[in-house]
Design a binder for these strands. Structure first.
Lengths: 173, 173
DNA sequence: GCTAAATCTCTTAGTGACTAAGATATATAT
DNA sequence: ATATATATCTTAGTCACTAAGAGATTTAGC
């Protein structure tokens, strides 16, 4: 096999492996939501709150891609479950900040322990330098996916015949 | 900062970076489904069909975590949209294989082009050897997440007081 | 200051994908 | 043959979602 062809095969393998693990990650999330007894998007919002801290309802809608109406429902359910609190912004009383209730959020966090343990085991075999490579990749990957999302959204308003000619890899098998 | 502490910080950073990119990946998928005009889980099934090839309805239910009843609906919609075909197994006529219609699937594939391009750009800066490291990580990661999912499912039937003592990292901020 | 426009969240009505339970059809075991 | 198991589909009911617009508050223009 030629040098470049070997790389192409490697890239394809990598892409598929990442797709698989990403799909399994989604499934893990679904299972967590199931076990925790909350809806999938409720859990997703908890995750965002964990990562971003205290955020407004509007920002939550933006990040999740849901309508503000749907977010009202999400926050209603989470608040009822005691997982978050609504906090009105005193400077701009239109805004509602959503904040996690730390103790209650711990209960949800428990369900991520199997994942953390599994990942710890995976990470363990890598040297610090290798981990830095992985971190660099994850960071760049995030930026890439973000850019791709924007590009895709841009594609919506572009009529098909005006779209840049996109070559698609053929299906396997 | 001590040697081990530096690693702990690195691990945490890595975990968060991966969570972020994974969340953005989910959002990309939602956007694709949106643009393609099909439901999220319909797209997920298309993805599985792409990765696994021709699979039975039951297997689809297994992999997605949906009930067989839900899968009937998914396949009905996908078939109506001309994206897949039902094919009865001639050896076991209870089984229904679901197969992608290649030409139609291409249309869906188009929406992954921005992602492929973004990823290509990210991958480009890595040497073959570095890519092999990433592949190894993705493969191991997949296995880890799979195992974690099973472990979590096992946790459901274990009453809280009998669960192994799980230590949870504290929340940031 | 006062009015109009903008911004942010919530409400309402309607839609659609999901689950649970059981029906149907086919296969396997005794 | 009969019973049990397996694979998919059907039905009824539930729940989260969207679209549209209603409050409530802030900002801009005069």
């Amino acid at each position: 096999m030629s040098r470049t062809k070997a790389r192409a095969a490697l890239l394809q393998e990598l892409e598929e492996a990442m797709r698989r693990s990403s799909a399994q990650g989604v499934l893990y999330g679904q299972t967590v939501a199931n076990v925790a007894g909350i809806a999938n998007s409720d859990l997703e919002c908890m995750d965002i709150l964990y990562l971003e801290g205290r955020v407004t309802a509007g920002r939550l809608a933006e990040v999740t891609g849901l309508t503000t109406g749907a977010i009202t429902g999400v926050v209603d359910r989470l608040e009822k479950a005691g997982l978050v609190r609504r906090e009105r912004d005193e400077n701009d009383r239109r805004k509602v900040f959503i904040a996690v209730v730390p103790e209650a959020a711990m209960k949800i966090g428990q369900f991520y322990v199997p994942m953390q343990q599994a990942m710890e085991k995976v990470f363990n075999v890598y040297s610090d330098e290798e981990l830095r490579l992985l971190l660099r990749f994850a960071t760049e990957g995030y930026k890439g996916v973000l850019a791709a999302t924007e590009a895709l959204k841009g594609l919506i308003d572009t009529p098909p015949e005006k779209r840049p000619d996109l070559k698609l890899k053929k299906l396997r098998r």
